[in-house]
Design a protein around this nucleic acid. Structure first.
Lengths: 191, 191
DNA sequence: CGGTCTCTTGACGGAGTTCAAAGCTAGTGG
DNA sequence: CCACTAGCTTTGAACTCCGTCAAGAGACCG
């Protein structure tokens, strides 16, 4: 499956899309490669592009007052990533986005996205659905963070995203789950 | 300001809207009154309507395995509320939505919302923006929950929403912040 | 290889929860 | 309009989960 086919299938999951529309859309996306450990976005910079992950694996994280990183999002192939707040408002981003593995992206700028909305109105619906999903899953994560002990959170993640554990170091998993690497290690020890 | 004017101004914050469009839109909204302590939505039921709060004050909460409530969202006048997951998928809701004060709502069903999109396409953009905002602020809350101690979280909420503290009992504030009422009481005691 | 990064393990401490009891407040009905 | 009750809030004491700190083992890469 080519990157474009992957993008198309991702869109088709939420809205119907024709060949002609895909043609129009694809003109506005640029490809971008990010090497492992390199940044797609830095803290303090405006997040100029919103990205679809064709290949690879990225994380988005913020840094608190004590200098500790907190991973807020993880994006595999077939996921979207970007700092939406910065992207839509033009304010400097509070999140860094970094490739965990060498990654291939389709990226789109704010202005080009606006043109897509004009030329292919159904895309407005697509992104609406995408953002609802992001909102719903984040609310779920928030809920589980305040109501479930570390062990339950770890096991639920393991159940829902076993693939994650093969590709991401333990300290990232800990950070994503809002706990320490030591806690993850101890949970893991008990079988 | 009438309820309809409030709705209009809420929409205008995000997208331009004409008199004619408002006319079309308003036909699809129904008014609904919810008395204090009464439910707008119950756990296990499909959330059939999405609501704009004209007057009053509601909370959305889930209940964990131990039977403890966790407030996931609070909506005043000029806010929107509903279980978006259930609303869009038709699955039973895991959240209850209850009026904290007597409330007046404008509600819209899933099907009528679809009609609005057809008749007033700009509304698709409106809701896209609404959901991006909801997503961004929830991510922010998640971040603060894992990185900041209870006292900081309490004070930040007090700073950003002082009005909340006049209208909502302390145990709800605690639940919304992901801590116990005792903790809130103790934080409050220190001046 | 040598050095850096990742992971494990142990001991300790503390932030925040749990449990319990009592004071306070507000709503209700007689 | 007052008395009563239920819910809200405070306070104290004990506990516990999980984070912190530290040290060492293993793994990976230049």
């Amino acid at each position: 499956m080519t990157s474009l086919q992957l993008l198309r299938s991702n869109i088709s999951e939420k809205v119907p899309i024709t060949d002609a529309e895909m043609e129009l859309i694809s003109k506005y996306f640029r490809t971008k490669s990010i090497k492992k450990k390199k940044d797609f976005n830095r803290i303090g910079e405006v997040c100029k592009d919103f990205a679809f992950v064709c290949k690879g694996f990225l994380r988005s994280y913020s840094i608190d007052e004590k200098g500790v990183e907190h991973i807020s999002r993880i994006a595999f192939e077939n996921y979207w990533i970007g700092d939406l707040y910065s992207f839509f408002t033009g304010e400097p981003s509070e999140y860094a986005i970094e490739a965990i593995e060498d990654s291939e992206l389709f990226v789109i700028s704010f202005y080009d996205l606006d043109r897509i909305y004009l030329e292919v109105p159904i895309m407005e619906r697509f992104f609406r659905k995408l953002f609802v999903n992001a909102y719903v899953s984040t609310l779920h994560r928030l809920n589980s963070t305040v109501s479930e002990p570390v062990e339950v959170r770890y096991k639920n993640l393991l159940k829902s995203h076993p693939d994650l554990f093969q590709r991401m170091p333990l300290n990232y998993i800990a950070s994503y789950l809002g706990m320490t690497p030591e806690s993850v290690s101890r949970i893991r020890k008990k079988r």
